[in-house]
Write a protein that binds this DNA or RNA. Structure first.
Lengths: 199, 199, 199, 199
DNA sequence: CTGTAACCGAGACGGTACGTCCGGTCTTCAT
DNA sequence: ATGAAGACCGGACGTACCGTCTCGGTTACAG
């Protein structure tokens, strides 16, 4: 039986230093050139302290970003709900397009996604901790539209979300095309046509 | 000025051995644990011979798979066209679902996608050589449907393709949900609702 | 001022466990691969308990062997004295040769000697606790021979002891030659020639 | 089968840099604190280049000193031979005492001896390359004395050498007593008594 | 009889070095 | 004069221990 470390004795100071160092270094050198050794050195921490608590580089970086979002206000997740689904969705999609253009956001998220592709465990964590809450907020907005009779009441919301976001996400991730506000609008419109309630 | 190698003198025997070794090793140990050193050893080739002709590990692997598909018959790319768009699309989507479940296919494609995320040059090559022809065949089927009045004549086919495939692709790549024949059908139906011609 | 531990509160149980573990581990893995950590684990003791009471790995091992010899009967130290110096010395030298061939003896003593070479403090302890009493017994036998007129009365006993033992010891320690009963005899004879009383 | 490096392609420049660095560092920090990493850094060499050609730290240091003595003039090995054995031996022993007092000599030789105790392979190399030639020179002087009728013609020269040097060597190595010119003289005299030709 | 001060087992911590792997460059030799 | 073979420098890997440092718990002496 393998000896497991005791979380009760974990040094919070070290944990914070490591996550901060990871965040800084990802920004400075990029994910691919990030090394455990550099994180440890920057954090003023022994390498073993990283290996003790994280299984991989990806896990550290994921945690580093999780820590950021957990620090943020909880209520900030809710999407706009003016009653006009079309307008609300277009606004959200345009905001997403803008967000994806931010270089500070781009690097780490790309890196994390690349890692996730080959690491199911990391993927699960990512879904649960980062994607999950956001998706739930989005679904909530769609449910509101369903109640308002603007979307089909029997729509599969998982598929709906994919229909709405996957094209945008894929275009960004694989750089298969330009991300413009017009594209955001067109996507929202196609989505609404697909999900319109039956007459 | 940097000395460029002369492609005319390139050893075809070495090129084939390297691509074959790359393909084998990706299957055996996965892309992440693949090393230039191992490819060279397996191919019975000096490392320099790899570095001389390819800029990165990703480029070798990409070439390895390109070589495979180029070997295949050119005409095999066309999609079924029975006149029934709904049936044809469902068949294609179900086939795609099945293909994604094949472990021999899964590993290398995942790896390539992971690499592409962080390497724009590789991404461009991938689009041009692998994704491009396939996408063109798909668009051709959609144009046929447009001519038959089954899809909106003014639809943006790039967006259409994304609407149809991105949800499936993303679900597979990021493992955000199960890939089933029912899912394939639902996706095709949602796509058709979104792209139906206006009355 | 540094806090000194209070010997009165020392756990005898821990002390014994540590010494026993040290002895076992030296036999099992050799001195060079012996670690404080392993001793602590084997003894079921915290590392600090070792560091509290011993300054170095060498000190622990030395103590471990001191504890052994202290446990032995005190009187057993005396050398045979039949009145025939030549016979007595040859017997003792042959016994020493045999002892040096015992693998259980060989490992730890080699290790201790290697350590002693680079650690004067350890050397002093070794001389005082282990070598000293033995040397004294040997000198006692030589004095007896002096009284019997078999050795020069004015001989320097320190040098005498070295003349008798150092060749044997060095041959063993540095493996510069075979240790045989004949060699033991030849050494004893040379010694007697060198130390014979003047006429 | 393990791949062996090809000595023909070995970099002489690297070899020299490594041996020089080893020599310098042994002097500066002592053998115990000497690390492969530091040698590599000082020599401007990859660690692998050391591991490729030497099996252990001890082997590097031994080679470093071998390289020194090989550089020296070959004939310089002969011992003084004035015809007066007693005087010659005392001179040599006193010189040895002086040599052992030199700190630049002391550190590395102590270290090498400590290592040799636990490493038979190293011991064999040491005997062959360093001790051997010196011992041969000493034996030559003794043979000369035998021819002059000053030593027993049938004396075992290996034992003779040990009788003469081992006491001195042991006293120095294990620090069991002071090394003085008087001690050197006494040792030479005892040796001559033991080895005097029978009348 | 009870604090309270020490030792104790346990093990996390900042570090150093290990020995290995591989990246990318440079050199040698055979074809 | 290319290409295989592979040595080279460099640097990160993940592991093993170092010696120090808490952390509760458990004695055992002092008030």
């Amino acid at each position: 039986m393998v000896k497991q470390p005791d979380p009760a004795r974990r040094s919070e100071r070290s944990r914070q230093a490591i996550l901060a160092a990871a965040r800084e270094l990802v920004s400075e050198v990029g994910y691919a050139k990030l090394t455990i050794e550099a994180i440890a050195a920057r954090a003023g921490v022994g390498k073993q302290t990283i290996y003790r608590w994280w299984p991989s580089k990806g896990a550290v970086v994921l945690d580093a970003f999780l820590a950021l979002s957990e620090a943020g206000p909880e209520g900030s997740m809710a999407l706009p709900d003016t009653g006009d689904v079309a307008a609300d969705l277009k606004a959200v999609m345009r905001a997403t397009v803008a967000e994806f253009a931010d270089p500070a956001f781009e690097g780490p998220i790309r890196a994390l996604n690349a890692e996730i592709i080959n690491d199911p465990a990391l993927a699960a964590q990512y879904r649960e901790k980062l994607a999950g809450p956001v998706d739930e907020a989005k679904k909530e907005r769609l449910r509101s539209a369903q109640r308002a009779g603007q979307l089909a009441a029997d729509a599969d919301l998982d598929l709906a979300l994919e229909l709405l976001y996957a094209p945008l996400y894929q275009r960004w991730l694989l750089r298969t095309g330009p991300l413009t506000p017009d594209y955001a609008d067109a996507l929202a419109e196609a989505f609404l046509r697909a999900m319109r309630p039956a007459r």
